[in-house]
Design a binder for these strands. Sequence first.
DNA 1: GTCTATAGGCAGATAGAC
DNA 2: GTCTATCTGCCTATAGAC
Lengths: 192, 192
Amino acid sequence: MSNKNQSREKILQAATRLFHLNGYHATGLNQILQESGAPKGSLYYHFPNGKEQLAAEAIQLSGQIIAADIRTRLNAFDDPIEAIQYNIQLIAEQFNQVEKLAELPTVPLGLLAAETALVNENLRQICEETFDMWDNIYIEKLTSSGYSEERARLISITTNALIEGGVTLCLTRKSSEPLLQIQKMIPLLLTK
Amino acid sequence: MSNKNQSREKILQAATRLFHLNGYHATGLNQILQESGAPKGSLYYHFPNGKEQLAAEAIQLSGQIIAADIRTRLNAFDDPIEAIQYNIQLIAEQFNQVEKLAELPTVPLGLLAAETALVNENLRQICEETFDMWDNIYIEKLTSSGYSEERARLISITTNALIEGGVTLCLTRKSSEPLLQIQKMIPLLLTK
DNA sequence: GTCTATAGGCAGATAGAC
DNA sequence: GTCTATCTGCCTATAGAC
């Protein structure tokens, strides 16, 4: 059982990294196995439903890691404006060294979501639940800072869209600039 | 030559639709040919560099179609706030009938950009140029409405990120709601 | 310019020994 | 639980008749 979980975890970690970085369709099971060091037989023992199950668990795993990141960053400042700006700043900094991108699981799931939404209902739902989870973190921070429920919802959706779109722009431009620029607009969005 | 261009155009149109909808890696050449009605020999006659060339031209084609859409929409209102809101509204409405999504090439290129940015330098550059083109349309509208060059740049980047991220959220939620919500924030962003 | 047939490789998935 | 060998099918790309 200890071995079982070790292997499983290694495979899942490699899958999570590769799916987020290269996407669902561009990532092969062989690639995942090679990186994790596990054999193919092992993969189907631990993930009987193959690639789809692997992607489902990968999205959930990184969804929770990112949620934890967002929570600690938002808690770093009382003022929600500073807090959200800090969060975006840290995401942006990942794009300074593109090599290091490979190590970090904190690239949001826009790619996976867009790839699967129209094609795989199961994965689509998991992405939706993940976005819900992230939304709720922002909403809680904002309502506890005195924003109305309705306004908090609006700001949260907008923030998530800004981050997902901003990440796409940073990837495309090979630069952290887009998110650093976007971050400057947060004070305007958080007008009460 | 008339036949040549007809075939070429059909293939390119099918490719454009499928790439934007399903992504680069999930779209097969067979699928493109089947939809276009053209034979495989024809594809490699018209696009000697195969899939990559097809994707490159598809991005450029839809990039220009979308640019034209943005231009006419921004020209529909003098006030840039109303104009940008109108543009987002029209993008959002595409997600009301998911069936009709298939017909419209106006889904921005976030998926293609994120898929290719780290993997194919040629396609990455084309995506970057396309984003530049769209940025410039917003910038021109804003500066001619009295916004400073610097502020116009900032707003344009943010608007593009909002749209790309918003589209991802709409796809994931199978709903036009996210973009309709986001649209409400435009007046705050355009504060002078 | 158009079409067929097919090469050659890699994908995801499975069977069965150990 | 692990590993190898292998199946089937689809992928991109090409060769060559017409």
